[in-house]
């Protein structure tokens, strides 16, 4: 299982969670994963869309308790 880091972006407005994710992806190695938490519902669709466009992998996404989450694996 890949090493996974979690970013708690709950309370941050669009496109804040995406920006936090992108900044964090720059700091990890290829193959590692980041799980982003957001209370912005758009994040659940925006992050997978962004990952697909730029070539990263969405491992899973969904809703849990008070937030949406998306797990992205850095692939390049």
């Amino acid at each position: 299982m890949s090493e996974r880091k979690t970013i708690d972006a709950r309370g941050s407005f669009c496109p804040g969670p995406l920006m936090e994710l992108i900044a964090a992806l720059k700091l990890i190695e290829v193959g590692q994963e980041i799980e982003i938490w957001s209370t912005d519902q758009g994040t659940a669709k925006d992050v997978p869309e962004w990952a697909a466009k730029v070539g990263h992998e969405t491992v899973e996404s969904g809703e849990k308790d008070d937030h949406w989450y998306v797990v992205v694996k850095k692939t390049k």
């Binding site: 669009c14 496109p15 995406l18 920006m19 992108i22 962004w50 466009k53 730029v54």
Partner: peptide
Amino acid sequence: SMIASVAAVSE
């Protein structure tokens, strides 16, 4: 600023 920043980080 939203359009510019999101487009810029989307290659």
